[in-house]
């Protein structure tokens, strides 16, 4: 057997889950879709004393589109990517979900699991950062709401959530009227983790950009791209603004080297992908992009 020994609980409610977290604290690990945690268990990179399996907590699985979009943390990626409500509110989400792993991975993987695991090459932390999403964290002591940037900070493979907190919900504010998106990533093969990627949401009043929210992934952590955003707001849509944003994005990006690519190469990718994502966004405007 590959994983090390652990005690196993399968609670059926949020209340039961947070009580278990309060009891076991840092010795416990929450098992969501398992598409990242189970490989880590199999490699014994993770050896939790106690595994709390929340796959039976039905109240964590929902998509609600009354007002802000609210998504339960155990919503599977396939359901997220195929939801009409999600596509209408934020079409960047299904565009990004289509790039996550493969069908078998998306059938099990969850939105909350992706955020809590916080792989720096994962799509959803960056996308939800660009959408100004917030998450709800529950513990036995109560509940708090945390913005995506506050959740991630500069962490990788962990978040600012405490050991006794359970990520229960993702809330995404409605898109501004006339906003449009671009999503670009570069991976060696479809379904592989991206070397780098950019999520861009812009709003124009016809020709001038009034709002810009950009986030990148594939560096040391998911991050907003404030220099790129500043280069866009107030500028006319077009090559000059997009080129300035690309350069700004590369400057903002916390690049990193590994066997798949050097830091310089990744920064170059961020520059190019930012320009392409903005071109896509310019081409996407109108047409139901929220």
């Amino acid at each position: 057997m590959k994983p090390a020994v652990f005690d196993y609980s399968a609670p059926e409610s949020i209340a039961e889950t947070v009580d278990l977290l309060a009891e076991h604290g840092s010795g416990a690990k929450v098992l969501a879709g398992g598409q990242s945690l189970v490989p880590m268990l199999n490699f014994r990179l993770a050896r939790p004393a106690h595994l709390i399996d929340v796959n039976g907590v039905d109240e964590l699985s929902y998509i609600s589109a009354n007002g802000a979009l609210r998504i339960g943390s155990m919503t599977r990626l396939t359901a997220l990517g195929e939801s009409g409500d999600v596509a209408r509110a934020h079409p960047i989400i299904p565009a990004a979900v289509a790039q996550i792993g493969h069908r078998a991975i998306r059938n099990r993987g969850t939105i909350g699991g992706s955020l809590a695991h916080n792989d720096p090459a994962a799509e959803l932390p960056a996308v939800l950062m660009a959408l100004d999403a917030e998450v709800t964290a529950r513990s036995a002591d109560g509940e708090r709401v945390v913005g995506m940037q506050e959740l991630i900070e500069d962490r990788l493979f962990e978040t600012t959530l405490g050991d006794t907190e359970l990520l229960t919900e993702i809330r995404i504010p409605a898109a501004a009227a006339g906003s449009s998106f671009g999503f670009r990533e570069f991976a060696r093969r479809h379904g592989d983790f991206a070397l780098a990627g950019v999520a861009a949401v812009i709003t124009t009043d016809g020709s001038t950009i009034t709002q810009a929210a950009l986030a990148a992934f594939g560096g040391t952590h998911a991050t907003r791209l404030p220099t790129a955003e500043a280069a866009l707001v107030g500028a006319e849509t077009g090559d000059a603004a997009f080129a300035a944003a690309g350069a700004g994005a590369a400057a903002d990006f916390p690049s990193t080297s590994d066997v798949h690519g050097t830091a310089d190469y990744r920064s170059h990718l961020i520059n190019v992908l930012t320009v392409r994502a903005l071109q896509d966004a310019a081409g996407n405007s109108g047409g139901g992009n929220g």
Binding site: Y8, L31, V38, D53, T78, R103, R108
Partner: peptide, 15 residues
């Protein structure tokens, strides 16, 4: 699993 493809190495039998 219930008609959907999954990786059986990434699930626990007890699930």
């Amino acid at each position: 699993m219930d008609g959907e493809v999954v990786r059986s190495c990434l699930m626990l039998a007890v699930q």
